[in-house]
Design a protein around this nucleic acid. Sequence first.
DNA 1: TTATTAATGATAGTAATGCTATTTATTATA
DNA 2: TATAATAAATAGCATTACTATCATTAATAA
Lengths: 226, 226
Amino acid sequence: MIVQLQIKVNPALYLRDPETSALGKNILKHGINMIYDIGFEEFTFKKLAQSIGTTEAGIYRYFENKHRLLTYLTTWFWTWMDYQIAFHTNNMADTKQKIHTVINLLTFHDKDAHTIEHIPKEQLHRIVVAEGVKSYLTKHITEDNKAMLFMPYKDLCHHIALLFTDYAPTYPYPHSLASTLIETAHHQIYFKDNLPRLTDYGGDKHFQNITIFLRHLVFSVLDAKL
Amino acid sequence: MIVQLQIKVNPALYLRDPETSALGKNILKHGINMIYDIGFEEFTFKKLAQSIGTTEAGIYRYFENKHRLLTYLTTWFWTWMDYQIAFHTNNMADTKQKIHTVINLLTFHDKDAHTIEHIPKEQLHRIVVAEGVKSYLTKHITEDNKAMLFMPYKDLCHHIALLFTDYAPTYPYPHSLASTLIETAHHQIYFKDNLPRLTDYGGDKHFQNITIFLRHLVFSVLDAKL
DNA sequence: TTATTAATGATAGTAATGCTATTTATTATA
DNA sequence: TATAATAAATAGCATTACTATCATTAATAA
């Protein structure tokens, strides 16, 4: 059985849907690899065009600018993550177990076997960790938000918040805790690799300790009395 | 009694010490106001030069580039915050009370009367909230880190971690919790204003709810058994 | 089959950005 | 007063971030 998972992204994020052509898919694939390799600041459409074998103007037909491409990618990731959570927690009886699953997914604790041809997920995850916040830390956040660009992030946050409320119905800050969980997963991954003195994970090669830290954090908060 | 508080920043961050001349102080003051007004992406040395009444090259004599200026500003802020914590928690007997003080300071809960002529602190705080992470989310993080540019952030984090360890000696992740507290204070402030659906603060005008959320978070984690 | 459309490729051009080098003016010191 | 050191002003260049035009190819419809 081959199931093709297609993620539909808000059309406001692109000029031409990159999923509908070979060039579009190349922009996504090479774009992810290049941002991963050289970072978002160094990344330009000219360099991307060269690596694909097309022209700068060719890429501008798909994305208004590189910031929009970044938002496309992070949005894609949030939608995908939201789906992963729905998929993996489906039919689980225990809410606590569901929350464990969410934390494992957010830290990429379990590797996902399902590969998508033109989206290198491992690299995309790293982009979201290292560059993701740049998609909303801008002066045009208000317009972007009105254009619903961050809906997938909000949905993800809301779904996690629902689990929190299910587990601890009286806890008054489920959304704040959910966004904190997501953001903390990211910066702790980044700090572990780049500013380890801001963490206590020592030489831990994987995300084991981050997972334990996050589990303890979330359940301490939800189990505590108010 | 007039006490002048002078913050010394790592000389690797500037080419010429901006504290030592009128132009330098203008760069800091107008730089803060301009980044606050138009955001870091839109901010350029040319615009800054115009607003000060000097030339682009004039600014380059003080700072290698705008990213270094941002790091200078955030670093200044961390050093200042670290000092604020030391000052305000000094002679406090109770560690719990010290941690409360830290949270109040991080959220700018209490206004600081002490003004510094060329550093508009309220705006600087907002820059740290909205742009601060951009100083370390770069591809040159490793060199920057080796050059000790982020020492003030690490010191601040460590001092908070020491309080956590004092309060809960067996808690194994005091630094991770400290960096999480700092980062969470920031993104919750940003989300409250710009992406409120990621929070539960409703129409709260001030940081009251964020403070309560953070207090509950920190003490739940520290009071929980392992 | 041919006509039409849509997507891509090639080329060029513009304004702003990020930065450097050189010259000119000012100040401090011998 | 001469001269060295410092700072300011000017000019310039390479890259970036786009936009516009037109030729070519591929896809589809009449």
